[in-house]
Amino acid sequence: MAMLRPRACSAETKYCPGCGHGIANRILAEVLEESGRDKRAIGAIGVGCSSLMPDTFDIDCVQAPHGRAAAVAVGLKRCRPDCAVFAYQGDGDALAIGLSETMWAAIRNERITVIFVNNGTFGMTGGQMAPTTLEGQKTSTTPMGRDAGATGRPLDIIKILRGLDIAYLARGSLSGSADIATAKKYLMSAFDAQDAGYGYSFVEMLSPCPTNWGMSPSDAMKHINGVVRQTYPTGEFLRGGGNE
């Protein structure tokens, strides 16, 4: 079977070899194009490795300030309610500097879709600790391994968002073909919830960062399946009408 590249993935991505962002970009493009949403899609793109996306992703977009992608998406969606509006952000962007914007877009049940790529590190800046870094994980700012006593435990945003009246909440993984297919379904469901007017949808994707994890691409995939998922279980957590 010939694999056709989505039209939106018009050029080679600029991510490191084995990076999960390339997969995330691809399934997002597939979801948008298979549902005909690519013609009316607008993205608000986070800062970090996410900010490499506008160069190679042929969908209308805005490069948001660091952490503010959800707020930019809110501005877009409120003005263009018929567009499929998404925020695309990493863990530093959405959960550290942008936690306030992430939470308030959800609290107001804004009709946007947030695509959250969790690779447990600040990739672009050289592998510093992120809110999602696992306990004991060595990073360039936790050289002895993350100490929960000093830095808090890894932030599981799904646990927090579950308590809100939002439309859709899921966590997938980019660590294998079956998981990627499932993550793609989650994305489709998220955009369906947005189009139905149910409100805020959020899809987290566990994603490998071989460069900063110091692993080969295949070991990074195994690490997600064997270790990362113990802290961040996958699945659909909310699926409904939000508070409409």
Binding site: I42, A44, V62, A64, P65, R68, A71, V72, A73, V74, G75, L76, K77, R78, C79, R80, E101
Partner: peptide, 9 residues
């Protein structure tokens, strides 16, 4: 940032 999004629209 919301204004940024609206202006872009």
């Amino acid at each position: 940032s919301m204004v940024y999004g609206a202006a872009a629209a």
